[in-house]
Design a protein around this nucleic acid. Structure first.
Lengths: 193, 193
DNA sequence: ATTAAAAACTAACAGCTATTAGTTTTTAAA
DNA sequence: TTTAAAAACTAATAGCTGTTAGTTTTTAAT
């Protein structure tokens, strides 16, 4: 059976690409670099992928699709808005702990997407942000959240969660659960006593 | 007097480089791209700069030096730790509003520094983070701040302040002062009511 | 108006880029 | 063991990279 092997090799290329793009950036990573990491001549990888651009697209849209389905999941929840916001942020942290390299690429290298893929990605991101903002807005209207500027709250939270991927490693002396709990405490209850 | 002109041209190159590096990344920006923006052949810029690497170094160390002197300033203040932390964060926001492109480059493209410049930059960043962490630690010890994990608090705050540069434009319908105030409210008092 | 320095230019370089075409090797079902 | 597809290889492509050398133009003080 040849199909299995092809799928696996493609996935290996994508995984190594995510790691390399995270480390050296999309433009700073050559197909020869990637081939070296995968253990294959650069040219050979074209049996599994269409182009370098397609690699980037696969990584970016895997992440944006995940975000969007997580949002849909949370929107369906029957719970207070604070709980919904908290859940969405927790899912962010989880995805980062699981697939940090891909998240990093989607966060930083999406700008190298071209043509309609670029607009498609930006649209997806805007949809996600819009949905998240609505949760915050409703939370404020319901009196559950402080009446802060919605955009400021949105981006402060999204960013506050992004550093995890840069910093977190098992062996940092803090468990994923504690990490999460600490971030949530700061964002929801504030740092001041 | 020719000296004046040389300094200005050099600064123009650095400014355009920061904008371009922010937009397309260091590796994604060619000297010909930069020349096009400056209005000069790529080769001509070498009358004002030593190399592409040197441009990156100038931008990165300008920012890291600013951060470090801001930290020193705050450390000298006679004030509660909450006030010190708040001041340092405000200075972050100001620097971003003033020099967003350069901040962005120092945040994202420092990894393209090479050799001892790379280690020098990482050391400076570590010193800054260490100093900031100490303020938080003392704040907790003094009972002014919630007893959260210091690293988590540090990076949550530093990141929460980074998105400004990606998002803020005059005409967003919020003044720099309100922007600041909203961020501080979320970080210090929390989003939950 | 002369002069010398500064700053622009053109042309060229060696090396790297993503990708293709064509060929050989590996894989796995018959 | 034969066979055909899949997946690896080598070699080559045109175009772009940062940078240098050498030349001409611009600038500004004498």
């Amino acid at each position: 059976m040849a199909k299995r092997s092809k799928v696996n090799q493609r996935q290996r290329i994508l995984d190594e690409a995510a790691k390399l793009f995270k480390e050296k950036g999309f433009a700073g990573t050559s197909m020869r670099d990637l081939g070296g990491e995968v253990g294959m001549e650069a040219a050979s990888m074209y049996n599994h992928i269409k182009s370098k651009d397609e690699i980037l697209e696969s990584i970016c849209f895997y992440i944006s699709n995940t975000y969007i389905s997580q949002l849909a999941e949370v929107e369906k929840m029957e719970a207070p808005y604070t709980k919904k916001v908290e859940t969405l942020l927790r899912l962010h942290v989880y995805l980062m702990l699981e697939d940090g390299a891909a998240v990093s690429v989607a966060n930083n290298d999406w700008k190298y997407l071209t043509g309609e893929k670029l607009t498609e990605f930006k649209d997806a991101r805007k949809r996600y942000e819009q949905g998240f903002a609505t949760l915050i807005e409703l939370g404020i209207a319901a009196g559950e959240l402080q009446p802060v500027n919605v955009s400021v709250a949105l981006f402060t939270m999204l960013s506050a969660v992004r550093w995890v991927e840069l910093w977190y490693r098992p062996g940092r002396g803090i468990s994923p659960e504690d990490l999460e709990q600490n971030i949530m405490t700061i964002l929801l209850n504030g740092l001041a006593k």
